[in-house]
Design a protein around this nucleic acid. Structure first.
Lengths: 134, 134, 134, 134
DNA sequence: GTGGTCTAGACCACC
DNA sequence: GTGGTCTAGACCACG
């Protein structure tokens, strides 16, 4: 469970954390009953203020994704995986829609747009490959 | 030159305006010497505060895309089209990269990711079609 | 809309604020469309840190009780009164139940318990009367 | 001497323990010279961390309600019953006052408030009856 | 050690 | 002026 924060993402940091936790649960990297990294640890790892992590975790509790185990930490709930898989699609579709809409407004033809998307997908799979083979 | 603002875009409104003006110039919809809508008019059309439009126009002047024509308004500069075409690609690639990277982090396989992108592209071209035929 | 905060209430301050706003809406003292006091103003009035008020207001937005009006403030939503009236009963019953349960555990007879409750209700209506007549 | 802990009470657990011990002494269920359950036993029975029980017992010793009997455990002092009876009324009145005050602030009329209180008292005496008959 | 709350104060986006 | 985000650091309750 490694958090990778980009402070210039546009998305608030706490939101990036919320998403990444949900994604980790959706993909099975975090399973029900497992503990998420402690507030302080996650904050250190992500080079972020503990309050910011705490806020993200608070929201995840409010959504029923995490539950508090007193004196122990925050654990993934039983319902979380199903919920997070739904959320994942929703969150990604929303963001994709926004960006593609903007691209469409830019006056590019559909062919040019597809070309742009293809280029980025290729770049992505290449960097993925690198990460995968390392 | 119609502005379409989405306040929940994540992008600040003034930035959305800056981008759309650049896009309009890049695509030839706005040509050197032409005037952009007045601050008040644009603000009314986009249902946005005039200060926000003013700020966007200020930035466009600072980048050399617009210039003041005393007593007349703001006109597109001669250098703007070349500049804006470069910007357009840069801005779109940057946004696309961010979103696709996030999608990649979400644990979706490349196939699933492509499927999502295709779905959104189809949705987009459909809504474009509608707008085109209206 | 005056906030009265008791830092030794046991209830977190942000929660006291959340409750009081809901109560004010439930009782009709705050109506749909009206603005709640600004974060800074409420913080000053309640002698509390603005962040604490902001957190309370954030939760009220998340519950759909308040909505943000950009650059203007936070307004009561249309749905808020119905929702808050339901909440009011729920919140009060929960608290009453806790306290009466504790009282019951204390070994008092039911008669003694009723006497205690009556005494407090009388004290309350007296202080209410004073406030009402002032 | 059975402890019934509600972790969502708002009251800290150690405080709930302190109160319940005092209540047991006030009502005569625990008499001077009698031993309270050992820290470990009480912790097991109440499903609570031993440290938390230890803290409660520490406070009860500081208040002069319990005293260490070397090698034996903690015993109720001679002065405890009188002291605890006073405390009981004080503690309950304080809590009742808080809750009723909050209820009053909620904008309910006195009649509605009384109705709420009656409802909870009835619920309480019913559950008491059940417990009594078991 | 864990999370939760609160304060203080900075900076940003928007009106 | 409005709310939103973030940092820094203190204190509390609990294990």
């Amino acid at each position: 469970m490694l958090l990778t924060i980009d402070p210039n993402n546009g998305l608030p940091i706490y939101d990036q954390i919320v998403r990444q936790v949900k994604f980790a649960i959706a993909s099975g990297a975090l399973r029900p009953g497992e503990l998420v990294p402690s507030v302080r640890e996650a904050a250190k790892q992500a080079a972020v203020n503990p309050n910011t992590v705490a806020r993200a975790y608070r929201e995840l509790q409010a959504e029923g994704v995490l539950r508090r185990v007193r004196g122990t930490g925050l654990a993934v709930t039983e319902d979380a995986p199903a919920y997070c898989r739904k959320e994942r699609v929703k969150l990604l579709e929303e963001r994709l829609r926004q960006v593609l809409e903007e691209a469409a407004q830019s006056g590019l033809s559909e062919a040019e747009l597809r070309q742009l998307v293809e280029k980025q997908l290729r770049l992505l799979s290449r960097s993925r490959g690198r990460r995968g083979s390392s």
